[in-house]
Design a protein around this nucleic acid. Structure first.
Length: 215
DNA sequence: AATCTCTTCAACCGCCTCCGG
DNA sequence: TCCGGAGGCGGTTGAAGAGAT
């Protein structure tokens, strides 16, 4: 619960507040959000500070319209994960969960007027598949198929290659299982039987992600 | 030009999970 | 083991701008 401090400020952030928050994060780093309002001299709650930073002020945030390949990837991930916006955003470098959620609710939900049986997903429990095909770092196993655009896009590069840049997505370079799982999922998303067979539906997506991230 | 309606997206709210004491 | 605080997430709201009438 928030400390019922005398009238914590709400609503739109001012430029001045943004500057204060930015300076504070630059100085102390992210985290310990409960201390941020005090450190920054802001009359805002910790959640508001965190949200403002993550959704707007963070330097690597990508602004502007979603590219076709980002949308394609988003749809595929949504088919796999459901409304797990933070997980989806984690695979879209520079995009925030809020961006993804807003985009989905604004544009894509309209298109999915009635959820097809395929979209009526029970959230799968992602886990690495045992693929015998070695993963080519250039992802050339199936890249002749235009429908697999996601696998050759900058966004998805973070899925299949070492992503040592400063974006916030997970660096999969040390986890071939993770790489292969995602690769397989994205490529076979049109063929439910393609990924359903080897999946243990007893675990949760979170569990998988945690395992994959080694947490 | 004025008013109404729709769209967009930043921000808030409430809940859940995790972790340390 | 229990409890409280902090972090994080998804759903929802509402203000502002754009477009339509």
């Amino acid at each position: 619960m928030e400390a019922p401090s005398l009238s914590v400020r709400k609503g739109a952030w001012t430029e001045e507040e943004d500057i204060l928050l930015k300076k504070c994060i630059e100085k102390y780093g992210e985290g310990t959000w409960h201390r941020v309002p005090f450190r920054a001299g802001l009359n805002r709650c910790r959640k508001s500070c965190r949200l403002r930073w993550l959704n707007y002020l963070k330097p690597d945030i990508k602004r502007g319209a979603f590219a076709d390949d980002e949308v394609d990837l988003m749809i595929r991930l949504h088919n796999l994960l459901g409304n797990r916006w933070s997980l989806i955003a984690g695979r879209l470098p520079g995009r925030t969960a809020n961006d993804v959620k807003n985009y989905w609710n604004t544009y894509l939900r309209k298109k999915m007027v009635k959820p097809s049986p395929k979209l009526n997903i029970e959230v799968i429990k992602p886990r690495p598949l045992n693929l015998s095909v070695p993963l080519d770092k250039n992802n050339n196993n199936n890249n002749n198929d235009s429908d697999h655009a996601a696998a050759s896009t900058p966004a998805s590069n973070s899925l299949v290659s070492s992503d040592s840049g400063n974006n916030s997505s997970y660096d999969f370079s040390n986890d071939n299982n993770e790489i292969m799982w995602w690769k397989n999922m994205l490529m076979n998303e049109d063929e439910p039987q393609g990924f359903g067979n080897n999946i243990n539906h007893s675990a949760s997506g979170d569990q998988f992600i945690n395992e994959a991230l080694g947490v």
